[in-house]
Write a protein that binds this DNA or RNA. Structure first.
Lengths: 193, 193
DNA sequence: ATCATTTCTTGACAAATGTCAAGCCCGGGT
DNA sequence: ACCCGGGCTTGACATTTGTCAAGAAATGAT
C-alpha cells in the first residue's frame, strides 16, 4: 500500500478495491524548491497529496506575504473554494523544498464518484473535519498569546522548526519574525534529534 | 415562501418542491434569553436555523469564556463536528435574546437525502463555503490588528453593535472588553439608525 | 418608576508585541 | 574553498494591548 493509499484509507475508510480505484487516478508530480503549484487569481484545477517535502500556502497583502499554512507529508494541497466552485484562487501554493506529490485533475476527480457512489458523503465528512480543525485554530487565536501559540506549534509540529524558514512559521502564527526569534530563544529552539 | 425557505433556496438552489419537502421537516422552536440550545460535552443532535434573535457560540476555558461567533437571523446553529460525527460538543450555544428558530432533528435530517438524491453534494458545497469563510477569518487574525478587526466587524455586521453585549463581540474578535471599549470611542460606536 | 445588577467606560500602569536598524550566521552556487 | 545573499538574531525604542480597580451608565426585574 502506498503512502497515498494509507492516507486515503485512514481519512475515508474505503475498501481495498475502491482504494486502488481512487489512487490509480493520481499521477506523480515532482516539484523543485520555489516551484508554484498554484498562484493567486489562477484556477485550482488539481488536487495534490504531499508525499515528500514542504509546501507553503500564502497570500500577498500589499507589501507583505501572509502564510496560512505549511503542508507536509500526508496533507492535501488545494484551494478548496477554487477547486469546488471554479472561482479564482485566493491562495498561492509554492514548494519550500523539493517535493514529491500525487496529483489528480479536476476531471478525474469527478470520476471518483462513479467508482464510489457514497463519495459525496465521504467528501462532506472530510471537509467537515477540515472545518473543525479551522474552528480550533480560530479558537487558538482568540484565546492564546503569541508565546502560547508558539509553544503549541512547537509541541505539535516540531519537524517544521528545522525544515522550513522560520519567518514563514512566524507569519503562520500571526507574529513578526523578530517576536518569533525571541520566543524561540525563550521557549526552545525546536531542534529535533 | 418562509424565511427558512428563502435561505435554503439561496444556499442550496433546490426546486420549489424539494424546498417544501425540506422545510416541512423543520419545526419551530422558541427560546428565551439565556436558554441553552447546546452545552459543551453534550450531543448536538439537532440543527437550528435562526429566524429571529441572537445566539452565542462559546466555550469555557478555565475562568473565562471565549465566544467563537454570534449567530443572527439567516444563520444555522449547530456544533458541526458533534452533529455529523456524533461526538461530544465542543461549543455551548446559548440565546442572547429571546429567539425564534426552526429546528430539525438528526433523524429527520437523514430523511432529506431521501427526498433530494443530490443532498450530500449540496451539503458538501455548503460546508465547503463555511470552510472558506473560516479561512478568511483566520487570515484576518494573521494580518490585522485589533483595531482593524474591530473596524471590519463594525463595517460588515453593524447590527451586532446595538443588540448584543459588547463583551461578547470583544471576545469574538480576540481582545479584552477594555480594548474594545477604547476602540469603540476611537473608531465609531456602531449605532445604527 | 425604582432598585439591583450587570455591563460599559475610564485611568494608571504593566506587559506583550511591533518597528527599525545593524550585524551575524549559514547555506547554496560558482 | 570562497563569496554572496537570504535569513536569523539582537538591541533600543515605539506602539499596541492587557490588567486592575473604580465609577458611570444601561438594563432587567419587581
Amino acid at each position: 500500500m502506498t503512502e497515498l493509499e494509507k492516507y486515503i484509507q485512514s481519512y475515508f475508510g474505503v475498501s481495498r478495491e475502491e482504494l486502488e480505484g481512487i489512487s490509480s487516478l493520481f499521477r506523480p508530480l515532482d516539484m523543485k524548491r520555489g516551484d508554484y503549484f498554484l498562484r493567486t487569481g489562477g484556477l485550482s484545477n488539481r488536487l495534490g497529496f504531499v508525499q515528500h517535502g514542504f509546501i507553503r500556502e500564502f497570500v500577498q497583502l500589499g507589501e507583505r506575504e501572509v502564510t496560512k499554512w505549511i503542508s507536509m507529508p500526508g496533507y492535501f494541497v488545494v484551494d478548496l473554494a477554487s477547486f469546488l466552485f471554479r472561482e479564482p484562487a485566493r491562495w498561492t501554493i509554492q514548494a519550500l523544498t523539493d517535493c514529491e506529490l500525487h496529483v489528480i485533475d479536476q476531471a478525474d476527480y469527478q470520476g471518483i464518484r462513479e467508482r464510489i457512489p457514497r463519495w459525496p458523503e465521504l467528501e462532506k465528512m472530510f471537509i467537515a473535519r477540515c472545518f473543525a480543525v479551522l474552528e480550533q485554530r480560530i479558537l487558538q487565536h482568540l484565546s492564546l498569546s503569541a508565546e502560547e501559540r508558539y509553544r503549541q506549534l512547537f509541541q505539535h509540529n516540531p519537524e517544521l522548526f528545522n525544515q522550513v524558514p522560520l519567518q514563514y512559521l512566524a507569519s503562520m502564527l500571526g507574529m513578526t519574525p523578530e517576536t518569533f526569534s525571541r520566543l524561540r530563544r525563550k521557549s526552545g529552539r525546536g531542534l529535533v534529534g
